[in-house]
């Protein structure tokens, strides 16, 4: 059980999906990320929290190869993935979403989902010229996409442009689209940001469902309440480093985290006024 691990930064797990060692990244002399050792247990929901500017999104970008690391190693299910292009990580079972939702607004919702399917033979230029080569796969993809739309309550938007959706719907769309790749690890960058409270519960439900399907979920979040509600394990970042990890209850009473956070909550309330 995950709760049995010792709540110390860098603790090793039994079935790690991701193992991160000595990963660092600097921007113009400023160290943005410096993670000594981190393991992410598979099949559970891990929250990555920390104050603004703690390097969470940068760390996410490094893990998903949207940015290159300066040094260190990252292993995905025991395989070194440093230098693997981001599009190939999706093929190895790791897919991410973005903090600022990237719904493809001038494409329909169903096209957004169909895009997500991997290994489409119709994506080869020559094969795309001959419909019979890819039409049966296309039908299969479409039925999977329809099933996912159903699951995320988006069926009524099926043929609308994604640009017409609300912020919360876009988050759902992005999650559904990521699931089209049938990933083992889902990395969600602030899935609740900008979502109205009514939709938050449904989103949280969907995230839990992902875990219950046996997928590994890592997500970045500010809101401690959300984190406590759905995560099995919490990793806390500050100034680019991992300062604590443990179960939500451990983290809540951890003095280091409280110190890091109190200041930040103060800051955030100020900036929210702007």
């Amino acid at each position: 059980m995950i709760a049995n691990y010792s709540p110390t930064p860098g603790v090793s797990k039994n079935r790690p999906a991701l193992v991160v060692k000595n990963v660092s990244k600097s921007f113009g002399g400023l160290k943005a990320v410096d993670v000594k050792h981190l393991e992410i247990e598979s099949g559970v929901i891990t929250a990555l929290i920390g104050p603004n500017g703690a390097g969470k999104t940068t760390f996410f970008n490094l893990l998903t190869a949207f940015d290159s690391i300066d040094s260190g190693s990252i292993e995905l299910f025991g395989k070194d993935i440093v230098g693997v292009a981001s599009q190939n990580l999706a093929k190895q079972g790791m897919v991410r979403t973005f903090q600022l939702t990237k719904a493809l607004s001038k494409m329909t919702v169903i096209d957004n989902l169909k895009l997500g399917a991997l290994h489409q033979s119709g994506e080869n230029f020559i094969k795309s010229l001959f419909t019979p080569i890819w039409s049966s796969q296309e039908r299969e993809i479409e039925s999977r996409a329809d099933a996912l739309l159903d699951r995320f309550n988006l069926s009524h938007m099926r043929d609308e442009f994604a640009g017409t959706m609300s912020g919360g719907q876009r988050k759902l769309l992005e999650m559904a689209r990521a699931l089209m790749t049938d990933p083992q690890i889902l990395m969600l960058d602030e899935p609740m940001a900008g979502v109205n409270p009514a939709l938050t519960q449904s989103l949280l439900g969907h995230v839990k469902l992902l875990r219950d399907e046996g997928r590994t979920v890592i997500f970045v979040e500010h809101n401690m309440d959300v984190v406590r509600d759905i995560s099995d394990w919490v990793v806390v970042m500050a100034e680019g480093a991992i300062i604590a990890e443990g179960t939500p209850d451990h983290i809540r009473s951890n003095q280091v985290v409280i110190d890091a956070y109190l200041g930040v909550h103060h800051d955030r309330e100020l900036s929210n006024d702007v």
Binding site: F66, A85, S86, A90, F98, K102, L104, M180
Partner: peptide
């Protein structure tokens, strides 16, 4: 529409 989104979904942009 968005190159990063496409890459995150396994498309070699």
């Amino acid at each position: 529409e968005d190159e990063d989104a496409a890459r995150s979904l396994g498309k070699n942009a």
